[in-house]
Design a protein around this nucleic acid. Structure first.
Lengths: 346, 346
DNA sequence: CTGAAAGCGCTTACAG
DNA sequence: CTGAAAGCGCTTACAG
C-alpha cells in the first residue's frame, strides 16, 4: 500500500520535486530541463512504477478530471447503454465518470448533486427529475458545468440534448395509420418533463392531421413510480374499457413491457386485434412473438454530444454564458411484426 | 464556484480552524469545546452551506470513502442490478461507488485497476477477467482490500462471493428430468473461470446420476466475446446437428436470449419439441411465449455480502490476512412454461 | 537550466 | 477549553 511519491523519485534522481513534476508533465522542454536529466527521471519513474496521486493533483489544480453522471435508473437498458457511451467518450478526453441513479426520487436526486459536488466533480451530466430544477439552477449559477440529457428545463439556460421526441412519435403514428390502424390509444407516464410532453404532443398532433373521421385522443397516464404489477393492472383496465382501440402506442419501454403482460393476460391478438408500438427499443421487443415495433433512441448521439458539450463548458473560461438551445437527434422507427396488420380473412 | 472553506467558518466564528474541524466532526465533546461555541459554529456552518472538501479530506486522511466496482458489463441486467444493490449498501456504510466495465477485455480490466488505484479508492469489488489475476494478486499483496464476485481465483487468498452455481444447475437438471426430458444439451461460454466450470460440472454430474439409459453430455462452448449474431448462428448449427436433444440448458442469460432467436429461426416448438432452461433470469424470459424457465441469481445476497466483506477488510488493521473461502449463496429455480412438457396428443 | 517555497483544504498531534 | 503548526502529495510562480 506504500505508494511511490514525487519526492521519492526526486530523491532518487537527486533533484527537486519541481524538476520531476515538470518532466513528468511534459513541461521539460518548456522549462529547459536537460535532455539527459529528462531521460534519467523518466526511467526512474518508470522503474519505480510511479503514478501521480490524483487526489493531490485535484486538490492542487482544482480539477478532478471526474464527471458526475446522474441517470434515472442505471439498471434500465436505455440509461445503461447511455452510461456506457458516455464512459467511453469521456475517457477519450481523459476524464473518468462516476455514475448514480435518482430512481425518480427528487430528494435522492438533490442528494446526489450534493455528494458529487463534495467529490469535486468537474461537471455534471444529468437526466433530471422535476424536483432537481432549483438545485441545478443554483449549481449552474455558481458556475458548475452542466449538461442535461433526455429532458430539460425550458426556463433554465442549461444546455440539453434530447431525442427528437415529437417527430419520432409523429412518424410512429404515421406508420400506424399507413398500416390501417385508426383508433390509436396512447399510454404514457404522468411526468411533467419535456421528453414526455413532446411525445404526447406528437401523438395529439398526429391525430389532428387525420382528415376524415378524426378519432379522439385516448390517453392513459400512469403515475410515476407505479410498481410493475400495478402498471400492468392499470393498463389492463384501460384496454378493457377502451375495446374500440385498434392500436396502442406506449411512450416508454417499461410501459410497453408492462403492456405486453396486460395484452397477454387479456389474450388480445397482436397485430390483428391490436397494433403495438413502443417508444424506446428493448431486446425484449426484438424477441417477442410477434416482434414489437419500436422507436429507437439515438443513444450514441446523445452520449457523444453530451460529453462534448460538457467538456467545452469545462475548458471554456469561467463565466462564459451558456444557452439552452436543446440539441435534438432523430430517433429511428423500427417496424416489426406488431404493427403489420394482416389482411382480414374474409 | 467559490466554495466555503473551514477557514471561512473559523474566521466568521473568530476561532481557529482546528476548533471548527473538531466541532464539525463531532469531536467537540472529546475536545471539550464549550457548548455555546459548538452551537455557534454549527449554526454558522449551516448558514454558509459549508461542506468539507472531500478531496482535501482524502489527501489528509488517506481514505477516499470511495469503492471501486469493476463488472463485466454494466449494461447487462445482472451486473446493473448488482451495481444497484452495491451502491445502496455502500451508501449505508458512508461510502460512494465508482463503476466501470471490463467488457471481458483483460487489458481494459488491468487499466481499470490502475485508474481506480490512482483515484485512491479504498477498496475493490471485482468480477474479474482471467487476465486480471496477476494484477489482483499484486494489489492484494500491497494490502489493497479486494472482494471478488461471481467468480474467483482458487489459488489467490482473496475473498469471493458466488452463487452456488453447481447446485443450482444440478437442481435445474433435476427439474428437467422430472418433467420427462432426457436428452439435455448444454450451451456455455468458453471461459475458464469458476462460475462457468461449476455450471458445467453441475450439468455433467447430473447426467451421471441418471441410472438407466444414461445419455452422453452434449455441450456447445461459444467462444467468449462472440457477437450476438454469430452466437445465434453457432447455436442454430448446434441444434441442427443434434436433433435428438429434447431439452437445452443455457449457462448464461445472453446465451439463452441468442438461443431463443435460433429456436425461433428453426421453428422448433417450446416446450413440446425442446425444453428450455436458462441460468440467470431476465425480463425477457418472463414475457416470452411460452415463458422461459430460469435460475435466478442471488444478486441481493451477493451485493450485500460483498460490500460487508470489503468494509470489514478496509476497517481491519492493515495486514490482517484474508482467506479465499468462497461465500456461496443459493440460486433459485423459476419454473415456467418452457419446461412443462405437455402430454403427447395421441 | 534548476531549486526552494508557497499553498490547495483539510486533520491531528502538540502545546498551552 | 482553545490555538498554532505540521503535513498529506502535488503544481507553479518566483528567484537565481
Amino acid at each position: 500500500m506504500k505508494k511511490v511519491s514525487l519526492k521519492d523519485i526526486a530523491a532518487a534522481a537527486g533533484v527537486a520535486t519541481s524538476t520531476v513534476s515538470f518532466v513528468l508533465n511534459g513541461k521539460g522542454r518548456e522549462m529547459r530541463i536537460s535532455a539527459i536529466l529528462e531521460t534519467k527521471i523518466k526511467a526512474l519513474a518508470d522503474k519505480a512504477g510511479y503514478h501521480p496521486n490524483r487526489i493531490a493533483v485535484s486538490l492542487r489544480t482544482g480539477n478532478s478530471k471526474i464527471l458526475g453522471l446522474i441517470v434515472e435508473d442505471i439498471s434500465n437498458n436505455f440509461f445503461a447503454t447511455l452510461a456506457k457511451v458516455i464512459e467511453k467518450e469521456a475517457e477519450s478526453y481523459g476524464y473518468n465518470v462516476v455514475f448514480c441513479s435518482t430512481e425518480n426520487d427528487d430528494k435522492k436526486g438533490r442528494q446526489l448533486l450534493n455528494i458529487l459536488t463534495q467529490q469535486q466533480v468537474d461537471g455534471f451530466l444529468v437526466t433530471p427529475t422535476i424536483g432537481m430544477s432549483d438545485s441545478l439552477k443554483t449549481l449552474h449559477e455558481q458556475g458548475y458545468p452542466i449538461v442535461l440529457m433526455d429532458r430539460n428545463f425550458p426556463s433554465l439556460p442549461i444546455p440539453s440534448i434530447l431525442a427528437d421526441n415529437y417527430h419520432a412519435v409523429a412518424a410512429g403514428m404515421q406508420h400506424l395509420i399507413s398500416q390501417g390502424y385508426n383508433k390509436i390509444g396512447f399510454v404514457t407516464v404522468n411526468m411533467d418533463l419535456v421528453q414526455m410532453t413532446q411525445r404526447e404532443a406528437g401523438y395529439r398532433d398526429a391525430l389532428k392531421k387525420i382528415k376524415s373521421n378524426r378519432p379522439a385522443a385516448v390517453i392513459l397516464k400512469v403515475p410515476i413510480n407505479t410498481s410493475q404489477e400495478n402498471t400492468v393492472s392499470l393498463i389492463s383496465k384501460f384496454l378493457d374499457s377502451h375495446k374500440s382501440l385498434d392500436a396502442i402506442f406506449f411512450a416508454t419501454n417499461y410501459l410497453g413491457i408492462a403492456g405486453l403482460e396486460s395484452i397477454r393476460d387479456l389474450t388480445i391478438e397482436i397485430p390483428e386485434e391490436l397494433g403495438v408500438l413502443c417508444f424506446d427499443d428493448h431486446d425484449i421487443f426484438r424477441l417477442y412473438s410477434p416482434a414489437i415495433s419500436s422507436i429507437r433512441q439515438p443513444t450514441e448521439d446523445i452520449g457523444v454530444h453530451a460529453v462534448k458539450l460538457l467538456i467545452e463548458q469545462i475548458t471554456q473560461p469561467m463565466g462564459t454564458p451558456t444557452q439552452n438551445i436543446p440539441l435534438q437527434f432523430a430517433a429511428k422507427l423500427i417496424a416489426r411484426g406488431s404493427t403489420i396488420k394482416k389482411l382480414p380473412l374474409i
